[in-house]
Nucleic acid binder design. Structure first.
Lengths: 354, 354
DNA sequence: GGGGCTGGCTAAATCGTTTTAGCATGCTAG
DNA sequence: CTAGCATGCTAAAACGATTTAGCCAGCCCC
């Protein structure tokens, strides 16, 4: 009733509409596309064309159109693994932006295998995607298409890198702790293979200086993490957090707060601290990073720095579309996104507030 | 060095290869596609063609090929929201299967808005996807393409529904509890809008009968959950679990175990029970459903029924491809997947084991 | 020496659009 | 009366492949 013609017989083509009206395909095409060349076609005819198209249920064939116009309105997305949380969050943002702008995207998960990575790059270009978004995907060669990288590991000329603003992240977390009176803060550094590790640590060092905090190297533990290319396992991270929580206590150095590299290790550490008889947040305050789903469900719930994954995806997609629209302008090398601090129950006043 | 020609100048077309060899495009095409009609072309020429293609870096244009062959090797995926955990898990499975078989997919997240849903269906068909996979997406009209549904809400003729085997799920959980000596078990039923609610409850009733367990209606609470179409919020679910955990205690009816509808509500309930001074698993055993990431990180870690989301996605994709390959055979109306029980620390022997 | 066959290829149509170049027709202006 | 110019359309060539229908040369055989 609501849609005029839904015989699934076979799709109506431009030619059918033209024949039905006794006009040429050219005319119908011009009208349907509101082409400037349709200037010469009187409004009355235009209405007839549109009416017929609607009546017959004409839908232009995107494939044919793509071939002719050399535009696919599709971009390729490369990521390690869809169900990974980080990638899914970013992808959701990418999707929102792209669909809104009339684009679709093709996704390929390379599971961190470099050879698959190249294969998929091939397949995507074969399918004529117009640009690429790489999420958490290391790449050294220059890319054959306009590209934007989220959490890029390396700087590539002409490729925009969308990343979190580590300065802000570090300041948010440390200012929060400092304000609560914490002076002796322990840190988990990221594993060496992660792109974020070094930048974040530099930011922490800088923010500490600003706030007049001293960093005790005995209280700075580096997560070993998974070797690059291995299967990402959250449980591993949790276990390591647990082990490192114990290690912290064993150092004997006094600390009243912990800023972990991510929520997973923070949760592991909370468990270890609890087992050692320390109360959170009364004896030790804990701040995580990422704001994964579990963070809110911990006991106590975890204060953490939230990465706005959705927005990072959106911005990455928007920047790519901008590039596609204006290929000649040179693009900014980086877009940094401001994280936010989600204060929950794992942080409170320092016990030795003097 | 490894790839002969990577001038990004402009892509090499079939015609270029033909010209370079002094042959016709036809010949090159026949050879490249290993078409049966290439029978008449001597191996020597075939080798020359392939060598030239490799040398020039020829990659067939998928768009042109799709237009001519009326095959896109692409399917459309409709889901509520990518970053939703459930959907992401299923999508990862879909992806694995499809990429392996040389297909790509276009995803559209409709955010549970029925009008968006129809729009995207249009857009996907316009892009000539060959089939559809709907994840957790309600639909009443028949679909214009071969389709497979994951967690379908309704039966549709010709559409295969991939779903978890609720019988097995209920038996796994209840047998585990019964074996530990639990007789008085509380239940959280799903909200009325969920497709799984009714099927699962029926299965629970049946399994209880098999195991000789009685269901106490006072201990059976129905989650109100989000109204259909609202934003899915895990925190809501957690809060509701918390409230319902308290309600259970307030009923005054004795129970030694809880089988929740999902992990989120189980986690909320665990918190409430703990706050009421009950120890888990010593006083009350708790079983969840889904095995979300957080389940493993709870204290105590949560025993739960795991839905093999990845496999459900794989099976859905495989079934769709089968349909595409053999459109005439009638397909099975349903594929049920066996869940597994992940035993962790939230379950133990019943306190009143007599 | 001519019909038929085989081997090795190719011309041309086709998929469903977009787009460039231009054709009638009628009116206006000089 | 005719050049010029709108007006309203269309023919045909793309886009880059696949596929059908055949062409031509040479050879065999009777």
């Amino acid at each position: 009733m609501n849609s005029p013609e839904k015989k699934p017989g076979r799709p109506v083509r431009l030619k059918d509409v033209a024949a039905h009206l006794g006009l040429s395909p050219t005319t119908v095409s011009l009208v349907m596309n509101r082409s400037p060349a349709a200037r010469g076609i009187p409004p009355e005819t235009q209405d007839r064309v549109r009416a017929a198209a609607a009546e017959l249920g004409y839908r232009p064939n995107f494939i044919a159109r793509s071939l002719r116009r050399q535009r696919t309105f599709a971009v390729g997305v490369l990521l390690p693994e869809i169900s990974e949380g980080y990638a899914a969050g970013v992808l959701a943002g990418i999707e929102d932006e792209l669909l809104q702008e009339g684009y679709f995207y093709l996704v390929a998960g390379h599971h961190s295998k470099p050879d698959l990575f190249d294969d998929y790059l091939q397949l995507l270009t074969e399918r004529s995607v117009e640009g690429l978004i790489l999420v958490n995907t290391p790449i050294d060669e220059p890319l054959p298409l306009p590209a934007v990288v989220v959490a890029g590991h390396r700087e590539l000329t002409g490729v925009t890198n969308v990343a979190i603003d580590h300065q802000v992240a570090a300041r948010l977390a440390l200012a929060h702790l400092a304000e609560l009176g914490h002076r002796r803060i322990a840190f988990f550094k990221g594993h060496a293979h992660s792109a974020d590790t070094e930048a974040r640590w530099q930011a922490i060092v800088a923010a500490s200086r600003e706030l007049g905090l001293e960093i005790d190297s005995r209280l700075t533990l580096q997560l070993s993490g998974e070797p690059a290319g291995e299967q990402f396992s959250p449980e591993e991270g949790y276990r390591e957090g647990h082990v490192f929580g114990r290690k912290l206590i064993e150092t004997g150095a006094r600390f009243t707060a912990l800023f972990a590299f991510n929520d997973i290790s923070a949760i592991g550490a909370m468990r270890a601290l609890g087992e050692a008889g320390l109360r959170i947040p009364d004896d030790v305050a804990v701040v995580g990073f990422d704001d994964i789903l579990s963070a809110a469900f911990q006991n106590p719930s975890l204060t953490t720095v939230r990465q706005p994954l959705h927005e990072m995806g959106r911005r990455a997609a928007a920047e790519l579309l901008r590039k596609l629209g204006a290929p000649d302008e040179d693009s900014q090398p980086a877009i940094t996104i401001e994280p936010t601090l989600v204060v929950r129950d794992s942080t409170g006043p320092a016990p030795d507030r003097a």
